[in-house]
Computed example of a mutant assay.
Amino acid sequence: MEEPRSIVAGYDGSAEAAAAIHWAAQQADLRDRPLHVVHVSIWPLLTHKLGPVPGVADSGLERSAQAILEEGVSRAQAAAPGLDVQATLLHGLPASYLAEISAGQEMVVVGSRGLGGFLGLLVGSVSLELAATASCPVAVIRPDLHPGGPVVVAVDASGSPTALADACALASAWQVKLTIVHVHHVPAGYAQQNGLDAEAAAGEVLHAALHRARTLAPYVQMEGRVLTDASVPHAILKASDDARMLVVGTQGHGFLRQTIGSTAHAVLHHARGPVLISRRGSGAHAP
Rank of each mutant, 00 (worst) to 15 (best):
T259S: 13
A80G: 10
L69D: 02
V153C: 11
R279C: 04
G111M: 05
L227S: 08
M245Q: 10
S158F: 05
S125G: 03
P161Y: 08
E2V: 10
A235G: 15
I277K: 00
S262T: 14
P274Y: 02
S59T: 10
R225D: 05
M222A: 12
V123Q: 02
A284P: 00
G281I: 02
Q26W: 06
A134K: 02
A103V: 07
V40Q: 08
A163N: 07
L164N: 01
I7K: 00
V176F: 02
R280A: 08
A15E: 15
L196W: 13
S240I: 07
H234W: 07
L164Y: 03
P81I: 08
S64L: 13
I141F: 09
G254I: 07
C136P: 01
H48M: 06
Y190G: 03
V247S: 01
P81F: 09
I7L: 09
E106I: 00
L89H: 11
S160I: 11
G124Y: 03
S231N: 12
H184T: 03
L130N: 06
A79K: 04
H146K: 14
L46G: 07
V123N: 00
L237C: 07
V53H: 10
K238R: 15
A266L: 05
W174Y: 15
A243V: 12
A103Y: 01
V40Y: 00
T250W: 00
S158W: 06
P52A: 15
S127C: 10
H91S: 15
R63W: 11
L206K: 02
E106G: 02
Q77P: 06
A239P: 07
S282H: 14
Q258P: 01
H182L: 06
R214A: 13
L98H: 05
V110A: 04
L276N: 03
F255G: 06
R244P: 02
L268T: 04
L276W: 03
R272M: 13
A208T: 13
K238F: 08
R225A: 13
R272A: 15
A17T: 07
V126P: 00
A28I: 11
G104I: 02
G283C: 04
K177H: 15
L145H: 07
A202G: 11
A201P: 04
G189W: 12
A243Q: 07
A167Q: 10
L61H: 12
I42P: 14
P44R: 14
Y11C: 02
V232F: 08
G149K: 03
P54V: 09
A25V: 10
H39N: 14
I277T: 10
G10T: 09
L145F: 01
T250E: 01
S64E: 13
E106T: 11
T133G: 05
G82I: 10
A79V: 10
Y190D: 09
G149F: 11
P287E: 04
H36Q: 13
P52T: 14
K49I: 07
K238C: 12
Q251E: 12
N194T: 06
R257H: 14
S240G: 12
L268I: 09
H269S: 08
I101R: 10
E100P: 03
V176W: 00
T88I: 10
G51T: 09
P52W: 13
A154E: 02
M107N: 01
G92R: 08
T250I: 00
L268R: 01
L61G: 05
S74H: 15
R244L: 14
A134H: 03
H269D: 06
